[in-house]
Design a protein around this nucleic acid. Structure first.
Length: 870
DNA sequence: TAGTTTTAAGTTTTT
DNA sequence: CTTAAAACTA
C-alpha cells in the first residue's frame, strides 16, 4: 500500500472510502486528481474491481489524458479503465446503439457552426446573430435535457417560435442523420430510458463511476449519470462549488449542492488542505469568494506558510500594465542563477481574449518567449472547415449542411438558386434512382455484427502495441454479458470483430430507417442525374459534374482500401489518442498566432499549392483537397494569408496520416477532430520555456509558480453586465485565477484603458474592494483613499473615482455598492439587489460585518442614504 | 453572381 | 481599433 503513504488523512479517507456514494469537495490545489487516480488504482488492486468496470468522466480531453497517464503510472491495469470526457463517452455509447436512436452508426458530429448553418436553412430571413442566438438556446435546452415539446422549455425561451424552430432543427438533423454536441449526452439518456434491458446491461458493466469537476456538469449529464447508476453502482464525484465558472453554458451548480439528496447515502469528504499556494495567496482568494452566498463552504488550509503577500499594482494604463508584466518576468529570469525563474513559471491571466494582444506585442518587443493558450482555433478556420465538410460529405451523403458549404467553393457557377433547386429536388425525393435501392454508399453502412453472436478479439489488443490488463470485460462478475475491447489508453478499438452484440450494433436493412431518400448529395450518380434533369444553367450543371467526380474519386479511394463495408477500423497507433502534429507550426519563439508549419516546406513557394500526402488517410485527404480546388481557392482569395491556409491544410493532411485509408478511418478521424479540438501545446511546449498568456477560464486545473491577474477593473473584471448570480460567478472566476498561483500573485488594475479605440477611465474592480487588505501589499499609485483606513474602500474609491457602480436597481431607488447609514448598525454598503417574489430585495452589508436584507419597497426608516449619486 | 463598400458591434467556452 | 455582417454596385 505504499502508494497510499503520501496521502493526507482526508485524501486517504477518500481513496479508501467504501459505501454507496461519495462526494469529494476538493478545494483548489488539494490534490484532487491525485485522489481520483489513486482511487482508481486502489479499487483495482485492493478491491478487485476489473479495470473495465470503472468509468471515469471528465470535461476536457486534457484532463482525461492526464488522469489516464497518472492512473496508469500507479498501476498499469488502470489503463483498462474507461477514462473519457462526457461527450466522448456519449459518442462511444451512441455509435454502439445508434439504431436505437434512429441513427446510423456512421453519423458525423456537428459543431456549433454547423448547427448555425443548419438553422440557416430553416430560418431563411434571420440574421447571423439571430441564428447564433437560436443555436445557443438550442444548445442550452439540451443542457437542461429539454426536448422541443417539453413544457419546461419555457425556461430557456418562452417564445413559441423558438419551440417551433427547435423542433424543425431536430427534424432536419434527424433527416440528415447527424448529431450535435448536445445529442451526445441527450440521446444516450433517451436510449437508456427506453431500453431498460440495455440500461441494466450497462449498469452491470460499470460498477464504479467517477466524475471529475462535477460542479461543471449540467442537467443532461446528471441524467446520464443517473441512468448509468444502478442499485449497486459506486458513484464518486469530485468538485468544488467555488470553482463553478460555466453556468453561462448550462452548468448546474445544484448538481453538486444537491448531490447528497439525489443519491441518498452519500458520504461527504472535504479536502481542505491546500498544497499549492502560500498562505497569503489563499487568504486573499478566500476573502473575495467569501462574499458569495449559496456556497457549501470550505476553509482552505495552506500547507505552505510564509511567502510574499500578493501585490496589488495600480497602473496608469494598459500599456504600463503590459510593460509592468514584462518587467516582472524579465527581472525574475535574470539575476543569480539559483533564484532565477523560468519563463514558464509565469502566467498572465486576463478576462477576455482581446486583452492578450497588448501583452503579446510587449513580450514580442522584448523578445520574451510566450505562448497563448486556447486562442487559435485550428479546426474553426475557414479552409479547414471547408475540407472537413468535404470529408463529412463523403462519410454521410445526406449532409445538407456540408453540401451547401462546399458545393460552390471554389465557384463552380452554382449559385443560390441552383443550390436550392438541387436541395429541393433531393428532399422531395424526386427520383434520381430506383426507389428500391438504398441510397447509401460507403459509410453510413452499418457495422457488421450478427445478432446473437458474441465475438471478442484479443488480437486487437495485441495489435495496439500496448498490453493492458484488458481482456474480456465483465469477467469479474462472470456474467454472461461481455463487452468489447479497449486498448491500454482506454480508447476504443474499433475493430469490427471486437464489437460485441451486447452493445447492440445491429445491422440495418436501411441505413436510415423509416426514410425514403433517393438521392445523396455526394452520390455521383445522383448528382449527375440532378445535373441532367433539373433546369439549371449549363455552367451549374457542369459544376455539379465536376463536384460529383471529385467525391466519386475519393470514395473510390476509400472503398479500394480495407473492408468494403467499412465498419470501425482500429487505429494504427493505439496509445496516442491524437495525431502528433495536428496544429500548425508553433509560435516557438513567441511568434504571432499564425505561422506556417515549422520545418515544413513553404507551400507558398511553389505556384501550385500541392499538398504532400504521406500514409494512410492522408492520401485521400490530399487528393480531396487538391481535386476540389480548395487549395487554389484559398490562395487566390487571400493573398496575405493564402500560404498560411495551405500550411493549415497541409497540417490537416498530416494529421490524417495516422488513420487508416478507409471509410471507418475517415469516420474516426472526423470524430476525433470534433471531440478533441483543443490543440494542446504538447508537441512543441513540452519543455519549451515560455510565459503563458491565458484567459481566466482556461486556467482551471492548471497551476503556475507566478501568476499575474490583469485588468482588475470594473467593466472588465467583473464584466459590466454582471449582477447577482452572474457576479457571483465572476467572483468564483477570480478565486480560480488567484488560486492558480503557487508562489507569487500580482493583481493589476489600470486607471485608463483603450476600449474600441477610445480611452476610458476605469475604476478598480469590486473584487479589490472586497479583498482582505491585510493579505495585500500595494505597488504604484493607489487611487486616493483606496487604502485609507479611516474610510471604507468603497467610499474612498468613490471619492477618487466617482460612483463605483452606476447600475441601478430595478426600482431605481437603490444602487449596488451604495453607501448607507443605519441607526442601529452604522455604516454599510448595498451588497446586492435581487429580484424577489415581492419585488426587489436589497442586501446590505455593514462595516461591522452584519448583513441584512429587506424588500426595497418597505425599507426601514432607520436607513439613511449617503454618498453621491451619479 | 461576385466582389466591394459601408456600417455596426464588440464575453467567458468544452465538446 | 478591429472584425464581421449587411448593403450595395459592377
Amino acid at each position: 500500500m505504499d502508494y497510499l503513504d503520501s496521502l493526507n488523512p482526508e485524501q486517504r479517507q477518500a481513496v479508501l472510502h467504501d459505501g454507496k456514494s461519495l462526494l469529494i469537495l476538493a478545494g483548489a490545489g488539494s490534490g484532487k486528481t491525485r485522489v481520483i487516480t489513486t482511487k482508481i488504482a486502489y479499487l483495482i488492486r485492493e478491491r478487485g474491481y476489473a479495470p473495465w468496470s470503472i468509468l471515469a468522466v471528465t470535461f476536457t480531453n486534457k484532463a482525461a489524458r492526464e488522469m489516464a497517464a497518472r492512473a496508469s503510472s500507479l498501476d498499469e491495469r488502470a489503463g483498462g479503465a474507461m477514462l473519457r470526457t462526457f461527450h466522448s463517452f456519449g459518442a462511444w455509447f451512441l455509435r454502439r446503439n445508434a439504431a436505437l436512436a434512429g441513427l446510423n452508426s456512421g453519423f458525423v458530429i456537428y459543431d456549433d457552426d454547423d448547427a448555425v448553418s443548419l438553422l440557416g436553412t430553416l430560418m431563411a430571413d434571420a440574421s447571423k446573430a439571430e441564428l447564433r442566438e437560436t443555436a445557443t438556446l438550442i444548445s442550452r435546452a439540451k443542457d437542461y435535457f429539454l426536448s422541443p415539446e417539453d413544457p419546461e422549455l419555457d425556461r430557456v425561451d418562452y417564445r413559441p417560435k423558438f419551440r417551433k424552430i427547435y423542433g424543425l432543427y431536430e427534424e432536419k438533423k434527424r433527416k440528415i442523420g447527424n448529431v450535435d454536441f448536445g445529442d451526445l449526452i441527450k440521446l444516450p439518456v433517451e436510449i437508456l430510458r427506453n431500453n431498460p434491458e440495455l440500461a441494466s446491461r450497462f449498469r452491470e458493466r460499470f460498477s464504479v463511476i467517477m466524475v471529475d469537476e462535477y460542479q461543471d456538469s449540467n442537467v443532461a449529464q446528471f441524467r446520464l449519470l443517473s441512468e448509468l447508476a444502478g442499485e449497486t453502482t459506486y458513484i464518486c464525484v469530485v468538485g468544488d462549488d467555488d470553482q463553478s465558472i460555466y453556468r453561462f453554458r448550462g452548468a448546474e451548480v445544484k448538481n453538486i449542492l444537491e448531490f447528497p439528496d439525489r443519491f441518498p447515502g452519500t458520504d461527504i469528504i472535504r479536502l481542505e488542505q491546500n498544497y499549492r499556494s502560500f498562505a497569503p495567496i489563499l487568504n486573499l482568494a478566500s476573502s473575495v469568494v467569501d462574499h458569495n452566498e449559496g456556497r457549501l463552504g470550505k476553509t482552505l488550509r495552506a500547507c505552505r506558510i510564509g511567502g510574499k503577500k500578493p501585490a496589488l499594482v495600480f497602473l496608469p494604463s494598459q500599456d504600463e500594465e503590459a510593460s509592468f508584466c514584462a518587467e516582472l518576468v524579465e527581472r525574475s529570469t535574470g539575476g543569480k542563477k539559483a533564484e532565477r525563474a523560468r519563463y514558464s513559471d509565469w502566467a498572465i491571466l486576463y478576462r477576455t481574449n482581446a486583452q492578450s494582444l497588448g501583452f503579446e506585442t510587449e513580450l514580442l518587443r522584448r523578445r520574451i518567449p510566450y505562448k497563448v493558450v486556447g486562442s487559435l482555433k485550428f479546426y474553426e478556420r475557414e479552409e479547414i472547415k471547408d475540407a472537413l465538410a468535404l470529408l463529412a460529405l463523403v462519410v454521410n451523403p445526406r449532409d445538407e449542411v456540408a453540401f451547401r458549404r462546399v458545393i460552390n467553393k471554389p465557384a463552380r457557377g452554382i449559385g443560390g438558386t441552383s443550390v436550392e433547386k438541387i436541395v429541393a429536388a433531393f428532399e422531395s425525393g424526386e427520383a434520381f434512382r430506383d426507389p428500391g435501392i438504398p441510397a447509401s454508399t460507403g459509410a453510413g453502412v452499418p457495422v457488421p455484427a450478427e445478432p446473437g453472436r458474441s465475438v471478442r478479439n484479443p488480437v486487437s489488443q495485441a495489435k495496439s502495441g500496448v498490453r493492458s490488463s484488458g481482456g474480456i470485460r465483465a469477467a469479474r462478475s462472470g456474467a454472461q454479458t461481455q463487452f468489447d475491447f479497449e486498448d491500454a489508453a482506454g480508447r476504443i478499438n474499433f475493430d469490427t470483430d471486437a464489437i460485441d452484440d451486447s452493445d447492440k450494433i445491429s445491422p440495418e436493412e436501411e441505413p436510415f430507417p423509416g426514410e425514403r431518400f433517393r438521392g445523396d448529395f455526394s452520390d455521383e450518380q445522383g448528382l449527375l442525374d440532378a445535373a441532367r434533369r433539373l433546369v439549371l444553367p449549363p455552367k451549374a450543371a457542369l459544376g455539379i459534374e465536376t463536384f460529383a467526380a471529385i467525391l466519386g474519386r475519393v470514395r473510390g479511394l476509400l472503398a479500394g482500401n480495407g473492408r468494403a463495408n467499412g465498419g470501425f477500423a482500429s487505429r494504427r497507433d493505439g496509445t496516442d489518442d491524437r495525431p502528433a502534429n495536428v496544429r500548425p507550426g508553433g509560435r516557438a519563439n513567441g511568434g504571432t498566432a499564425d505561422k506556417p508549419a515549422a520545418g515544413k516546406p513553404e507551400a507558398g513557394k511553389s505556384p501550385s499549392p500541392d499538398l504532400r500526402s504521406g500514409e494512410g488517410l492522408s492520401v485521400c485527404v490530399a487528393v480531396l483537397i487538391r481535386d476540389s480546388g480548395l487549395a487554389e481557392y484559398h490562395t487566390a482569395h487571400d493573398e496575405i494569408n493564402g500560404y498560411q491556409r495551405i500550411g493549415n491544410l497541409q497540417e490537416l493532411v498530416n494529421a490524417a496520416s495516422l488513420y487508416p485509408a478507409d471509410t471507418a478511418g475517415l469516420l474516426e478521424f472526423l470524430e476525433h477532430i470534433e471531440l478533441d479540438r483543443s490543440i494542446e501545446e504538447d508537441n512543441r511546449s513540452g519543455d519549451f520555456d515560455a510565459v503563458t498568456l491565458i484567459t481566466l477560464h482556461n486556467t482551471k486545473g492548471l497551476e503556475f509558480r507566478r501568476v499575474i491577474l490583469t485588468g482588475l477593473e470594473q467593466g472588465i473584471f467583473p464584466r459590466n453586465d454582471k449582477e447577482a448570480d452572474d457576479l457571483e460567478e465572476e467572483r468564483r472566476l477570480f478565486y480560480v485565477g488567484a488560486t492558480r498561483a503557487m508562489d507569487e500573485l500580482y493583481l493589476c488594475s489600470c486607471a485608463l484603458r483603450r476600449m474600441y479605440g477610445r480611452t476610458q477611465s476605469m475604476l478598480p474592480s469590486l473584487f479589490l474592494q472586497e479583498a482582505d487588505r491585510s493579505s495585500l501589499r500595494v505597488i504604484g499609485a493607489a487611487p486616493a483613499g483606496f487604502l485609507s483606513r479611516t474610510e471604507s474602500h468603497a467610499a474612498g474609491a468613490r471619492r477618487a473615482y466617482g460612483p463605483l457602480q452606476s447600475r441601478r436597481s430595478s426600482d431605481g431607488r437603490w444602487q449596488l455598492g451604495e453607501r448607507v447609514f443605519h441607526d442601529d448598525q452604522g455604516y454599510g454598503n448595498v451588497a446586492g439587489i435581487e429580484e424577489g417574489e415581492d419585488g426587489p430585495v436589497v442586501k446590505v452589508r455593514f462595516d461591522n460585518g452584519y448583513e441584512t436584507r429587506f424588500l426595497s419597497a418597505y425599507q426601514s426608516s432607520k436607513f439613511t442614504k449617503i454618498g453621491n449619486k451619479d
